[in-house]
Simulated scan of single mutants.
Amino acid sequence: MNKRSPALTLVQHGLLALMCVIAVFPLYWMLISAFKNESEIFTASMFPHKPVLTNFTYAFDEMPIFRMMLNSFSIAIMTGVFQMATSLLAAYALVRWRFRGQGLIFSILSLTWLIPYQAVMVPNYSLVNSMGLNENIMGIVLPYAVSTFAILSLYQSFQSFPRVLIEAASIDGLSDFGILVKLILPNIKSMVASLGIILFLNGWSEYLWPMLITKEMENAPIEIGLRLFVNSDTNMWGSLMAAATAACIPILLIYILLQRQIVDSFVRYGMK
């Protein structure tokens, strides 16, 4: 068994290396395609023979990339803030007070998580359209202001918090909001930070709903802007790869800066 262990370890590391290559290769191909000229963009060359920057200049001239990145950041941050605020209050209310129908409310919340978003997309679109929020960031953010996933996650954390401490703080005269902000949150800040990262990334990667709300590049997040660019100029694949490369840089920098926290968030919630 000991003689086979090094071979087994080698095979395992080889498989991991292969999976890493498979995962990274599309990003590598996107990067090299951004520097290829039109004559070699469809070739199987692994390196651009004559690297060019015209793809980047054309992409930045034809697309408001910085504006769309700002839109994506605004949507992701606002969505995360709204979801975190509503989830904290809802989860705290379910844990703090005992009232008739509490179990029913919790069951309904749990069931809403199972409803596909496509089932409520048309009513949401009708409501947003009637409010005149098309081509508006708030039209994208408001339907996502509440997250059942976040409520249930915080509910589990609040349930594990010692209720004796909550009662003691209440007897000492601390208000309910003060108990939440001054007592509970400081003790579960790592969990709240992990959840905040997940909510931000979910808001950043949302595609279907923003595609329905925005039709102009100036008002769209970066993912929708890339789709609009494809529809408007289908032959400029080099420029599309350049724009996609530029769009990946901010989120890549965030990952590098918060690598440990992001990995912890994925491990904590078992999400990809």
Rank of each mutant, 00 (worst) to 15 (best):
C248L: 13
L228E: 12
L111V: 15
I105V: 15
E135L: 01
M241Y: 05
K36Q: 11
L31D: 06
Y117H: 07
A85L: 15
R227H: 06
M211P: 00
C248W: 05
F47H: 08
L195Q: 14
N136G: 03
V128L: 05
D233P: 00
Q102Y: 00
M63Q: 07
K182T: 08
K182N: 15
I213R: 07
F149V: 06
W97N: 13
A59K: 03
G139D: 11
R227C: 01
V120S: 14
I108S: 06
V267L: 06
N55T: 09
S239P: 08
N37F: 00
M84V: 12
G225P: 07
P123V: 04
L10W: 12
T148W: 01
I213T: 14
M63W: 01
N202E: 09
M78C: 11
L208G: 11
L257K: 13
V11E: 07
S157C: 02
N235P: 00
Q12L: 08
N231Q: 10
E223V: 04
I184D: 14
P143D: 14
F42D: 13
A17N: 07
V146H: 02
L152Y: 05
F82K: 06
A44N: 10
T148C: 02
R227L: 09
M68V: 12
K272I: 15
F106P: 01
I22P: 00
L195C: 09
V21K: 02
K182L: 05
G14C: 05
A145G: 15
